[in-house]
């Protein structure tokens, strides 16, 4: 993983309305222990990541958006490999941030990912 590594984020079908993706797709939920799960794009292509998420993990996704490691770091968000659930798993770490900062950084990540566009759409 390096600064240009794409971090792939699966988007739930209900997280899209009239083409708009919600910013909550890029912030951890209360049960995520402040860590947002992503796929390490150096280890898995968007197609393979999508297949893993929907077939192996049997979760729902309408596609993938992505941010890079450096884009996260520009927002003071650390990125770490987290191979415990599966080898290609990584996390964007929001630990220690208050709610307002979580919201702001989530919104910024979403805008960056939006500007990049969909890497894959089902």
């Amino acid at each position: 993983m390096n600064s240009q590594t794409l971090l792939l984020r699966q988007i739930h079908p209900t997280f899209v309305q009239q083409g708009r993706v919600t910013s909550q797709a890029f912030r951890p939920t209360p049960k995520d222990e402040m860590k947002l799960s992503v796929y390490d794009g150096d280890q898995m292509t968007p197609e393979k990541a999508f297949e893993h998420f929907t077939s192996v993990l049997q979760q729902q996704s309408v596609g993938e958006l992505a941010v890079t490691v450096s884009e996260c770091e520009s927002l003071d968000l650390k990125v770490e490999a987290d191979p415990e659930p599966f080898p290609e798993h990584a996390i964007i770490d929001f630990t220690g941030l208050g709610r307002k900062d979580v919201e702001s950084k989530g919104k910024k990540l979403k805008s960056i990912a939006d500007a990049r566009g969909w890497l894959l759409q089902a």
Binding site: T14, F15, Q17, T22, S23, Q24, K31, K107
Partner: peptide, 21 residues
Amino acid sequence: PYLFPTADGGVLAEWTAGPWE
């Protein structure tokens, strides 16, 4: 508003107003 369910059983409303999210 754009509306989305949240994982904890709520609803998230969103708007964009120029530079404001």
